[in-house]
Design a binder for these strands. Structure first.
Lengths: 195, 195
DNA sequence: GTTGATTTTGAGCGATCGTTCAAGTTAAAA
DNA sequence: TTTTAACTTGAACGATCGCTCAAAATCAAC
């Protein structure tokens, strides 16, 4: 049987993901994508079906990468909270200028697709719910480890974390406030422990 | 001499603003706008110069409307904090289903224009800075009224408020979590008073 | 080396994009 | 009433959009 695919699907999706993350879905043209992934339109469309299909796979991959990054920081830390804090500091401070965007790609997606019955709108909601569940399990571990008290549940800690994290990333999506990041992250974790 | 303009600039900008707010800049076509404001392309272009020009005026108008709304709640409340809380509750809870988007148009704009040297990117940063200054003056009033302690300054309260408010709006930009809004807003103001 | 299923290529389709401008309409000034 | 500057209209321009598909290239199987 014939021929083999010449591109590595993983790499293509990651490159596309970075472009979509930076520019958004509507501002990214298929020609931008062709150049970025070095494929001709026919190959892209036979592999992913449509621009929407490629975006869909890119967004799913983004959440996988994000969870992998968190796992990395967790395994490098004694505590769950320490791992999460290293993750937040890495995203908000260290990667601020090399990341495609300061804003979470999933948050951007949920903001961009306003049409309630579009596939991408539903995908964003679905992935957000999954991520919240993932965070919940982490905070339940933290509770069981005695890192956090039992006044509130894992899901409630997860909600609070998401509000703080999203708010911080949005706030630091601007120049000239870099020196505020470390103290505000510290404050965030002080507040978490005081809930 | 000659003729008078037939449209009311205020209304046109407000309608355009709602459409841009809902769909974003790139997903809103000039033909969408023509239909929404009931004007032909020539009139729009003679009045606003370009799609970007109309967006620019729409975004500026949005911030004016937002400040006006805050002023309204402030004059209906005994305290600054009470007014701000009524404002947050109105935006996050009451207007959730009639507003063009759950996300602040200014936050959306700052997320959408990634090109650092585009006019709209700079406009977003500029309006954000202005809004933070406006919030700072409000919190300074609250401090002087004795509503808040003097441990931190007005600008620091303003930053905290923005992080919480943006995070909350992003979190409640999804279906099925409505009953969490009131307790989380209460928590937000408890935290503000405890800083 | 030949075959033949599979993948890659890229010219180009129809649709839509932001925008222009000559022609038509309007109403204040003369 | 006539003039005339200002405003409105909408057909249409060139560019770009997402996407298609016939032809060329590729390589495992024989």
């Amino acid at each position: 049987m014939a021929n083999k695919v010449k591109f590595e699907r993983e790499n293509v999706v990651r490159v596309a993901s970075e472009l979509f993350w930076k520019k958004g879905f509507h501002a990214t043209s298929t020609r931008d994508l062709q150049e970025a992934v070095n494929m001709r339109p026919g190959s892209i469309y036979s592999a992913f079906g449509s621009k929407e299909g490629l975006y869909s796979e890119s967004l799913k991959d983004y959440t996988v990468q994000m969870k992998a990054k968190i796992e990395g920081f967790l395994s490098g830390s004694e505590t769950v909270l320490g791992g999460l804090r290293a993750f937040v500091e890495s995203v908000v401070i260290k990667e601020k200028d090399c990341s495609p965007s300061a804003i979470c790609m999933l948050v951007k997606a949920n903001g961009e697709f306003s049409d309630k019955d579009s596939n991408l709108h539903e995908l964003g909601l679905d992935l957000s719910a999954q991520f919240e569940n993932y965070l919940s399990t982490l905070f339940e571990q933290a509770i069981n480890n005695g890192e956090l008290n039992k006044n509130i549940t894992g899901i409630e800690y997860a909600r609070f974390f998401q509000v703080q994290f999203t708010g911080l990333r949005s706030y630091f999506n601007r120049p000239g406030v870099e020196q505020l990041a470390q103290p505000m992250i510290s404050q965030m974790f002080v507040l978490i422990k005081s809930l």
